[in-house]
């Protein structure tokens, strides 16, 4: 079981999709990075809030989860490419037969999981399908 700081430490990033942008090479990072892999020591990093609109690059539906996520099965997990470029891993709320590569998605704020029976409930971003273009 974890302590509370493990979860609140990343609240801005996970609740509001705050990542980073390197103004030296103009590359966006989510999850946030402290060091730009392109520029390393010459990087100029600043916070950037992502819109959260993106496209499903690949996905799976999980039927057999770890104990913390058992109650949510089956659920869809995808790698999503944000409009600004970076990719992230997140759940997509829709039926397993509906999700497909190339699907457009937008972010929603949801309960993500719960540690054990009496553990910490934690929140973050999930995604839902969007009709038409984004």
């Amino acid at each position: 079981m974890s302590t509370v700081p493990r979860f609140w430490r990343h609240i801005p990033q996970r609740y509001n999709l705050v990542g980073t942008h390197c103004s030296k090479c103009d590359e966006y990072y989510y999850p946030p990075r402290t060091i730009c892999p392109n520029c390393r020591r010459n990087a100029k990093m600043e916070d950037h809030k992502f819109k959260g609109l993106g496209t499903v690059v690949t996905y799976t539906t999980i039927y057999n989860a770890t104990d913390d996520f058992k109650r949510q099965t089956p659920y869809n997990l995808a790698i999503i490419e944000l409009l600004e470029g970076p990719r992230l891993t997140g759940q997509v709320i829709c039926s397993p037969s509906e999700i497909e590569i190339g699907m457009k998605v937008k972010p929603v704020f949801r309960i993500l999981g719960k540690e054990g029976d009496r553990g910490i409930i934690y929140y973050g971003t999930k995604f839902v399908p969007v009709e038409g273009s984004i």
Partner: peptide, 21 residues
């Protein structure tokens, strides 16, 4: 742990996403 598992990723799920693509 922080950016995959936190959102519900399992180890088979990551390989499943490689397989799917």
């Amino acid at each position: 742990r922080e950016w995959e598992c936190f959102f519900g990723a399992t180890f088979p799920a990551l390989y499943a996403m490689i397989a799917r693509l």
